[in-house]
Amino acid sequence: MPKFLIWIAALAALIALPHGLSFSQQEILVFLTINVLLVASYRLLTLTGEWSLGHVVIMGVGAYSSALLTKKLGVYVPVSMLLGGVIAALIAVLLSFPLFRMKGFYFLIGSFAAGEIIRLLWKRFRDPFGGAKGIKGIDPMPDFSVGFYQFDFFEPTSYYYFAGVVVAVCLWILWRIEKSPVGLTFHAVHWQDKLAQASGVNVRAYRTLAFAIASGFAGISGALLAHYVGTINPNAFDIDLMVFVLTWAIVGGTATFYGPILGCVVLTVINEVVLRELGLEQMRPLIYGAIMILSILFLPNGLESIVQKLTKRRAAGGAPERSPAE
C-alpha cells in the first residue's frame, strides 16, 4: 500500500524533525504543534458557518483552568490538562446562551466582546487569576520514561513528542467527528439550515455542540501551552493571536480538514523561520501583512486549492468539495 508508506514516511520525518533544528527552532516547533490543534479545533466551529473571535480566549480558559487546578488543588498535570479542556467546553456551553442568539457579523463581534470580558476579568481579579502579570511557576509536566525513551520536559524535543502525540490523538478525534453523522449535520446546519430545521434537526443544539467540542480542544491546546511555558498572562490570549488563527484558517482555506493546518504550518514557517533567518526582524509584520493581502486577493480559496489541483490531476474525481466560503 503506497498510501500506508506515505504515512510511515511522514511519521518518521516528524520524529526526526527536531534533531535537525536549533534550540529556538525546536521551541517554535512546540508552539507550532500546539497551534495546529488550536486552528484545527477552530475549523470545527467554522463548519457550522460561524466565525468566532473568542476562540483564543477559550484556549486561555483551558490554560488558566489547568494551571490553577495544579497550583491550588495539586491535580496531577496530565489530568488537569484534560480537565482544562472540559472546563473550556463548559464555559463555551454557558457562552452559547447569549451568543447563539446572534448570527454572522453579530456573532463575530459578540464572541469578541464575550472573550474580551473574560480576558479583562483575569486582568482585574488578582486572586485567583494573578492580574495583569498572570500566573507564574506553573508545574511542568512530570518527567517519565517509556522504556526506550526518557521524557525530560525541560527539553523542547521531549515536549514536542509529548504534545505531538496528544495533538495527533485530538486531530484523529476531530476528524472522526467530522466524518460521523454528527459532522455531516454540522455541514447541513451551515449550508441548508432551513432544510435541516424542517427535517427535524435541532439547529441551535448542533451549533452549541460544535462550539463546545471546538472549545474543548482549544482548551487542551491552551493547557499544553501553559505547562510548557510555565507562565501565562491575559495578554498571551489577546486579539493579536486570534487574528493569527483567523488568518491561518483563511489563508489555508476551510473547505478541507487539512486546509487550516496547512495555513498554520506554512505561515508559521515563513514568519518564524524564513524571515527571521533573513534578518528582517523589524519588517516581519510588514511582509506577513503583505502575504495576507496577496493570498486573499490571488488565492481566495486558500492554499488547499493548490493541493486539490495537484492531487486531482493524479486521481481524477474524489470526494465532493465544499464550495468556498460564502
Binding site: 487574528v243 510588514l286 493581502i293 486573499i296 460564502e326
Partner: peptide
C-alpha cells in the same frame, strides 16, 4: 468576499 475584506484590512493594519 466579506471575510476577504476583513482579512485584507488586517493585513493592511499590520503593514
Amino acid at each position: 468576499n466579506p471575510l476577504g475584506g476583513l482579512v485584507a484590512s488586517i493585513g493592511f493594519l499590520m503593514i
